[in-house]
Design a protein around this nucleic acid. Structure first.
Lengths: 337, 337
DNA sequence: GATTAGCACTCGACACACCCAAGTGCCAAG
DNA sequence: CTTGGCACTTGGGTGTGTCGAGTGCTAATC
């Protein structure tokens, strides 16, 4: 009873089940694949696979379906990531290159990913933390109202309107801006609070109160930057694959809606050498996703921001992984401009 | 056979069906309501109601369920909008008042609405069109890169980074900004393109090319403002009420995801004297929503932006309408600050 | 020792028959 | 106009039987 053949059998079971959505039996297996052995042999192999917890039978004397563990082995050891077709690549490229600004790029990306994989797509906004300060602008809107704008090198722009405790004059504001700007220009956003503290302490007393207000606003802008935002698309794909979710899709929709959950999910995944990460069924930390799989990867300069898809455990992993990886690559390239 | 009683019967049928999700028969009706007549009489009434197309029987000899037309009559003539409970009001108020900026307010609103109604909540961002120009800012980021910021009186801020065809200098940019600003300060955003055209034509030739680039950016910012953005929450509520959607919830999720569809849906509704609008089942223009109802209303100064919920036709209209109206009112109040 | 053929056995799915309860429609009497 | 009564319809639940796919095991074979 050779080990390689058993793996081959597992591979065949996964592929057939993903394709047909029905438990697959020993006979069907030898018919559809050239395994060179009889169904009885396959049955023996399947018995071993079941013992190892890689496949399971929904009920006595029915075909087998892969378990989460079986999918895991399949993903880790067997499957080869299929390259996308040329027209698909072309489509990705033209679509992404037509985008206007960052929001548009992200929006197109998430839709593209959903359409390509027929799953729910999730895209996290680029981390603003890794970027640095490109420019700061302060605009006096009213005697006690200042618009504070923070522009990062990655093209994101954050702004907020703040009230100052007392009236502030144009000249005063301009000086404040100059002092702050010269101190923090080029500083990493993560290091911004520290630098800002120094600036504040060096301000001449008359500027202190107003300076404090503005500095606080800047800190917030840098902190709660855009990296905590995620975009969704393709939730309707969940409904299409009813039957893949024996329970209801309710908990999944709930999880998707909770940005916090999604963010944790994306950030907590372990990214292997290939840079692409798969969480299968019960491997997911969040209970509501025990029947869903997540395929994700990082993108951008330091792969700090994440993107991926969520779908049923019964999923075409090789194709999906290829699509996720391809989209991430093209997105990274587009963002470099 | 009195007309008022027939309406009363319809009301009872709607209420019972909404409550029990099961076709309601004549016997159950006289048991649960004090109608003062026998079941035979109710049967006669029901026959008439059925003839008028207000109720229907899923199959021969079963109870009746309201038709879309029946719900319509119920909503128009019978139901009284129930006021919210005091604790609910309190909850709305405290929640909304704790918000930090506009995005936060909208986010809280949509979640609140979803939770309050147990339906899918939809909130359109405040229209930027009715507001006017408060300030314009141009920042030179690089020799050929300018950040253009447009601040509206309603507090929304739009920004975009544009490339200029050739190098532009600080002084040149400052003059451009001054000219544009003095011309359009206070101008309604809807009238902005016209005013900008005048400014451009009056620019001295050397400033023309760069001015054109910046003006075009401003036009876009004013046009595609934020009023075309919508926020969703509570999609998981759709899954909870499976059975209310005989087909699948797929088409509904698809519709929800298409912002364009949602925007048209919200804007095309006819708002009656009460200012609250209900679209029931097949009244919806979009086919995928033939089994869903939409309850919406306007909010804000001119009630130009819309907010509402989407749920199954079998819905507790009085309570839902009350919640939608209440949230819209509180939101309007909060936005006035 | 691995593979194969053969065979008994197990269940789920489907079809069919059946009955029951809820509910209607209609009629004739009040 | 209302009511009681009654025949009729029908979906849903239950029980039975059959069928087929698929398994596990054993004994024979390579």
């Amino acid at each position: 009873m050779s080990e390689p053949r058993r793996l081959e059998v597992l591979r065949a079971i996964v592929e057939d089940y993903v394709h047909s959505r029905e438990p697959v039996g020993s006979k069907a297996l030898v018919d559809r694949h050239q395994l060179g052995v009889s169904s009885a042999t396959i049955r023996n192999d399947m018995a071993v696979l079941e013992e190892e917890g890689l496949i399971a039978a929904p009920h006595t004397s029915s075909g087998r379906i892969p378990t989460d563990k079986g999918y895991r082995l399949f993903v880790d050891r067997i499957s080869e990531v299929k390259p996308l077709s040329a027209p698909e690549k072309k489509a990705i490229q033209t679509l992404l290159e037509g985008a206007e600004d960052l929001d548009d790029v992200m929006d197109r990306t998430v839709r593209l990913l959903a359409q390509l994989t027929n799953q729910v797509a999730v895209v996290q906004f680029p981390r603003v933390g890794g970027a640095s300060v490109r420019h700061i602008e302060c605009v006096l809107l009213a005697p006690q109202q200042v618009l504070v704008v923070l522009i990062a090198t990655n093209g994101t722009v954050q702004q907020r309107i703040v009230r100052t405790p007392s009236e502030i004059h144009e000249a005063e504001l301009a000086e404040l801006k100059q002092r702050i700007l010269s101190a923090v220009s080029g500083v990493k956003l993560t290091a911004l609070p520290g630098e800002l503290g120094i600036v504040t302490s060096q301000l001449p007393p008359p500027l202190r109160t107003h300076g404090g207000t503005i500095v606080k606003a800047l800190e917030q802008l840098a902190g709660l930057g855009r990296d905590d935002r995620i975009l969704l698309a393709g939730t309707a794909n969940l409904a299409r694959s009813t039957g893949d979710f024996p329970l209801s899709i309710g908990p999944i929709l709930e999880a998707l809606e909770e940005q916090v959950v999604m963010l944790r999910l994306l950030s907590e995944m372990e990214y292997d050498a290939r840079g692409i990460s798969v969480r299968i069924g019960s491997e997911n930390p969040y209970g509501g996703l025990s029947e869903a799989s997540v395929v994700a990867t990082g993108y951008g300069p330091d792969a700090g921001a994440k993107l991926g898809i969520l779908g049923p455990t019964r999923m075409d992993y090789p194709t999906t992984m290829a699509a996720v990886r391809a989209v991430a690559r093209y997105l990274s390239r587009v963002l470099e401009e």
